[in-house]
Amino acid sequence: MTALIKMVSGLIAWAVSFSVLYALHGLGCALGWTEQAVPGLTQARVVLLVTWILLIAAHGVLLVWLLRSCATQMQRIGVAIGWIGLGATIVTGLPILAISSCV
């Protein structure tokens, strides 16, 4: 069972990252974090950007851990899923860079 969960850990990490970003965005907009924190960036966007970068880093750490063992096919699938999770977190977070925070 542990081996199976390890195999899909990259996608579990994506699910967590996605939920965190979505929840944080909803919370930020509800609490009105729309003041300029840094010139050109609202508070909500700064918080989201920092969180997103931390989540990407966490995916990286997970991937390094997965890469340490590639003996069985399940472990190799796990590495591929680790890459998918990393890519998915990057792509699903892209709107943070370009879109207005709370409109």
Binding site: L94, P95, A98, I99, S100, V103
Partner: peptide, 10 residues
């Protein structure tokens, strides 16, 4: 995303 952004009421 770019098209959607341009249609927003800002």
């Amino acid at each position: 995303l770019w098209v959607g952004q341009r249609n927003l009421p800002v």
